[in-house]
Design a protein around this nucleic acid. Structure first.
Lengths: 230, 230
DNA sequence: ACAAAAGTGTTGAGAGTACACCCATGC
DNA sequence: GCATGGGTGTACTCTCAACACTTTTGT
């Protein structure tokens, strides 16, 4: 018999088993990739944590992540995916907590609380404040995953406003990947992929106005990358 | 304040919150891809489940998966990765269970219990018996992930014995992917990748003896597949 | 007219794909 | 000697990567 019934939390020596859902929320502004953090602990010895909480009794894990995201960052209709579940017994000194981490990407123009209170803030992933517990590991994991997905899927657009120029798009890729890309190759490849289309408008600024593009909702983000093995 | 302390399992209306770890264990024999299932329920209306259990108080999630794997399938030193966490509130009628699913791949010659009791058995993923709850979904998810990883990483070798012929390797790929591959292209590509080396021995059978290969432990399974996006 | 950013093509190298025959052994 | 599975090479196409100049606007 594999599954035991009963009340496991109590049977296990009285230890409580907490499950939390934490969300790593990425956004892109000021030429930098940011995540949302909440402050914990007293000023002076302050530490930062990911927004999170416990799933409610009748709430699925993804629904909980969605709720947390909406509460802290504002928008709905954003990119959200399960990242990983962290459950080492000694993650936290006060007791065992199993955390189901999610990754979210929101466009900066939808991200509420861009200049939010001192308990909540966007921080560059390249200059993070001290994080509590093993949050650093979770953030690293999320960043690795975001970079990976950026190359093989269309997540990149989830970080941008609805209309964007090709230069802005390229810049977004460069910021997240931490790597420079060739302008002509970038444009050829992204246009040939057929995932974006001109919106018909232009954006003026310094120099020649740039054509605006939008992501094609009907785009098949068919990720047919080359196989490593036969 | 995001995290509440106390005894959440009781505070939440007396509902207990169970966390289990389940493992989808793949192996390859008889020209077919199999997973290990355990029987639950009475004969006649029997249903099958994935091997699983609760993590012990001082045991990490991966450690729990390793323990379950060792107990049911025998070997250690096998491929094991976290798959996904399933936590819909209505997964099970008897109460809420959050399941952290793992994916394992073991070579058939290490898989104990190949002809095990009637409570435990290997089943072809292409002909599964009736599964309890949402196990079907978990198995599908695992199969999708296995196929995906097969193409871009070196998991394939985890399903094979230490020494294998190129024909056996190709056959393994074909069985898992459900697709035929070209012999010459397969060989050129796998050899050029530098992940296997001849063991020096040969296997005799019908026809010309086949050269045996082994997986190179020092192989950099550098997955440099083509980017979809720039 | 000039500064500033947008936009545009070509070429060489490497990888993918399709395809058919000879080789070594056991019986 | 023949059946059985093992092993090998080539030609075409496509994608990648490297690389520099012209165009359009605002001041």
């Amino acid at each position: 018999m594999i599954y035991t019934k009963g009340s496991p939390a109590l049977e296990r020596g009285g230890e409580t088993l907490q499950v939390t859902v934490d969300v790593v929320i990425f956004t892109l502004f000021d030429d930098d990739l940011h995540i949302l953090l909440v402050r914990r602990g007293p000023a002076g010895a302050e530490q930062w944590a990911l927004p999170g909480g416990m799933p409610r009794p009748d709430e699925g894990l993804e629904a909980a992540a969605q709720r947390i995201l909406a509460a802290e960052a504002g928008p709905s209709e954003v990119y959200l995916e399960q990242l990983y579940t962290f459950g080492d017994p000694d993650r936290r000194p006060e007791g065992r907590v199993i955390t189901v981490a999610y990754l979210a990407a929101v466009p900066a123009d939808q991200a509420a609380a861009l200049n939010c209170g001192s308990d909540l803030g966007w921080y560059s992933v390249y200059a993070l404040p001290p994080l509590a517990y093993d949050y650093g590991r979770i953030v690293n994991y999320a960043l690795t995953r975001l970079r990976y997905k950026l190359e093989y899927t269309a997540v990149g657009f989830e970080l941008l406003p609805q209309a964007f120029t090709l230069t802005e798009l390229q810049s977004a890729y460069e910021i997240v990947l931490g790597e420079e890309l060739d302008k002509r190759n970038f444009r050829r490849k992204i246009l040939r992929a057929g995932v974006i289309e001109p919106s018909g408008n232009y954006r003026s600024g310094e120099g020649r106005p740039a054509r605006l593009y939008r992501y094609r909702e009907d785009a098949v983000a068919e990720v047919k990358a080359r196989r490593l093995f036969p």
